Simulated scan of single mutants.
Amino acid sequence: MTQTLTLSQLTKTYDGVTALRDVSLSLASGERVALLGHNGAGKSTMMKIILGLIPYDGGNVVVTGAAPGSAEARRRVAYLPENVAFHPALTGLEQIRHYLRLRGQDAGAAMGLLERVGLAHAATRRIGTYSKGMRQRVGLAQALIGHPALLVLDEPTSGLDPVSRRDFYALLDGLAAEGASILLSSHALTEVEARTDRIVILSKGVMVAEGRLSDLRRGAALPVAMQITARPGQGDALARALPGAVAQGDTLHLACDQDAKLPTLARISGLGDLVADLEVLPPSLEDIYSHFSRRDGQ
């Protein structure tokens, strides 16, 4: 697969304070990668370097086969900030036409872009009347100009309602299916848990974890939780059969190590008519994020 972004031992300091230290990361076409970290972890610094807005001190950065900030990289990279700003007196259609002309492209493509982000119905309304979610859609329409190979998105769903968030991620899924790479910074961990291919966790400028969610779960080795529901009248018998479980009515809560998950499931399955239902709850992304952040000494 084509590599759209490669960071090799990237380092950046501000007045002697290290913002990024030896960060290495690559994105292939069609990949959706979530960038997680506390405030000050280095996410914004990394994005600014990728966009060519600030220099870096060490390592190497290649963006769509070119140097960050070069004409080739700018042509093929799009950016959507957390809080987009547009002229309130312009309509959505006028704003996108303006950006198309700035990029030297046909202004007639504006309506098609607005349709793609679900704003055709409000194309002739002034942006000053738009909700935040609608303004974010204008920003995404602007970002889609020129069919970018890499999209850098900074908290793109901040302030959006649940339906708008769902629609936004559905659009990102479509872009990834067409081959665009997506680097997404977010604090909404439950969102990115199911809508990204890989996860990167930064802490104090260091990449403390990287990989698929399943890889991070194995690396964190956090306990697996299970909820076992007893059949009517079998709660006491089930509790006696699972002495390590905590009972709440007819539901028992049990935790075990990752390596013990399958033996524990086999043990519960062997209880037969005592069990009405079983739910396995693997560590969430929030649990994993907290684990790796604390491991780095936060």
Rank of each mutant, 00 (worst) to 15 (best):
M1W: 13
L10C: 04
T11K: 14
Y14S: 03
T18P: 15
L20D: 04
S24L: 07
G30V: 08
R32H: 13
R32L: 12
G42W: 00
K43N: 11
L51K: 10
I54A: 05
P55Q: 08
G58P: 07
G59I: 06
V61F: 05
V63P: 13
S70Q: 15
A73C: 14
A78V: 06
V84S: 07
A89S: 15
R97S: 13
Y99L: 02
Q105N: 12
G108K: 09
L114C: 04
E115W: 04
E115N: 13
V117Y: 01
A120H: 07
G133A: 05
P148E: 03
L160Y: 07
D161R: 01
P162H: 05
P162Q: 08
V163N: 14
L172T: 06
L175S: 09
A176P: 03
I182F: 05
L184C: 09
A188N: 14
E193H: 05
R195M: 07
D197H: 15
I199H: 03
I201P: 01
K204S: 12
M207T: 06
M207N: 02
V208C: 07
L216R: 00
R217D: 00
T229Y: 05
L238S: 02
L238V: 10
P243L: 00
T251S: 12
P263G: 04
T264W: 01
L265W: 00
R267V: 01
G270Q: 12
D273C: 07
D277P: 01
L281S: 06
S284Y: 06
H291G: 05
Q298N: 07
